[in-house]
């Protein structure tokens, strides 16, 4: 649906622009969300779950916008509107880089043999601990062999939790973003609700 009102311009169903937000960064973010929702069904889940206000400050461009999510709707306003649950502050370069972060999923990890072996080792440790409490002392190899079939089964299980994406810490951009955060080039402030928004928001805005 496209239409204009005093409250702003409605872009497409559930993404709405506040007054004066029809250009620049505000309009870019609205368009990015709209196109990502069209292109990728998994982003629709994240969009539905997001609830709260995100303030994005692009320091070098001297632009601030507020994204207000709730009930499968988004309103984008210029400036800070309301009390943000999550504030992201960085230069235009880092804000753009955030959309380029690499992602992976448990399913993807199990498709990769070395990573699957690593997962087996990871799951084997708690199993070994449990095993010790029950009787004979197992070897690492025994524990890994016991867990390996589970990891193999994960490869073939089609569950959305296994497909849910999380940052791939091996990715170059993801590492650069982590470095920028440590060096204070990318600031984020959040309350409890904002903390739960970080991952779904990053997935929603991702273009990779």
């Amino acid at each position: 649906m496209v239409g204009e009102s005093d409250a702003g311009v409605e872009l497409a169903g559930n993404v709405e622009l506040g007054p004066g937000a029809d250009q620049g960064f505000a309009s870019m973010m609205a368009e990015l969300v709209r196109q990502n929702l069209q292109d990728d069904a998994s982003k629709r889940d994240d969009f539905q779950r997001l609830k709260g206000r995100v303030c994005m400050v692009v320091e070098d461009a001297e632009v601030t916008i507020t994204l207000a999510f709730g009930g499968g709707n988004l309103r984008v306003d210029v400036g800070t509107v309301g009390t943000p649950d999550l504030t992201l502050r960085a230069t235009s370069e880092w804000i753009t880089q955030m959309s380029l972060m690499e992602w992976t999923s448990v399913r993807q990890l199990t498709q990769n043999s070395p990573t699957a072996r690593r997962l087996s080792r990871l799951f084997a440790t708690p199993l070994k601990t449990l095993w010790i409490s029950m009787g004979p002392i197992p070897t690492d190899g025994m524990a890994r062999r016991a867990v390996a079939p589970v990891v193999r089964v994960l490869k073939h299980v089609d569950h959305r939790w296994l497909q849910r994406r999380f940052p791939d810490w091996k990715g170059q951009t993801t590492r650069e973003i982590a470095g920028a955060t440590r060096e204070g080039k990318l600031h984020s402030h959040f309350n409890r609700r904002g903390a739960t928004m970080v991952l779904p928001l990053s997935r929603l805005l991702s273009v990779v």
């Binding site: 250009q23 620049g24 960064f25 309009s27 870019m28 368009e31 990015l32 196109q35 990502n36 292109d39 692009v58 070098d60 461009a61 001297e62 632009v63 235009s92 370069e93 804000i95 753009t96 959309s99 380029l100 273009v207 990779v208």
Partner: peptide, 26 residues
Amino acid sequence: IDPIKGMMQGRLKLTKGHLPTMLRFV
């Protein structure tokens, strides 16, 4: 001005094209 910064400031406008693709090739 950097092209992406210019777009954020509203000085450059993408009037046609897929924005996520544009950002992927920043």
